[in-house]
């Protein structure tokens, strides 16, 4: 599978990554090589094999419905690039 520049732009947009125009051919080349590697998977027929999402067959452990977290807003917002009145600020969201 070989990706062209347009596909790279599309994927980068979906992943919200700014890629400089001059870097796109390099990405297209490397990503295509990786996909070639990945497509070696097709050497094996996997029809009817149950996909495995986790490495062991356990089931979800559940938590009791208890509130134990307390307000740590100021502590957490120390890392915020921009905040005001307890809110995280971002460039205006257009609905």
């Amino acid at each position: 599978m070989s990706l062209d520049a347009d596909q790279v732009r599309k994927i980068a947009h979906l992943a919200r990554l700014a890629i400089r125009e001059e870097d796109i051919p390099g990405y297209a080349h490397n990503l295509s090589n990786i996909l070639d590697l990945v497509e070696k998977m097709n050497q094996v027929d996997t029809d009817g094999i149950e996909p495995m999402a986790h490495s062991h067959d356990a089931v979800q452990r559940l938590r009791e419905d208890r509130v134990t977290e307390t307000n740590q807003r100021e502590h957490f917002q120390v890392n915020a690039p921009q905040s005001e009145d307890g809110l995280f600020l971002v460039p205006r969201v257009i609905e």
């Binding site: 938590r63 419905d65 208890r66 509130v67 134990t68 977290e69 307000n71 740590q72 807003r73 957490f76 917002q77 009145d85 307890g86 809110l87 995280f88």
Partner: peptide
């Protein structure tokens, strides 16, 4: 109508001051 959130132990009460009921899990740290 649970007391705590679906994936964290922060409260679900309505009307609290902004981000005072958002714990580390809710913030996606």
């Amino acid at each position: 109508a649970t007391r705590s959130k679906i994936f964290s132990a922060a409260a679900t009460a309505y009307g609290a001051a902004p981000n005072t009921q958002a714990c580390a899990v809710d913030l996606g740290l």
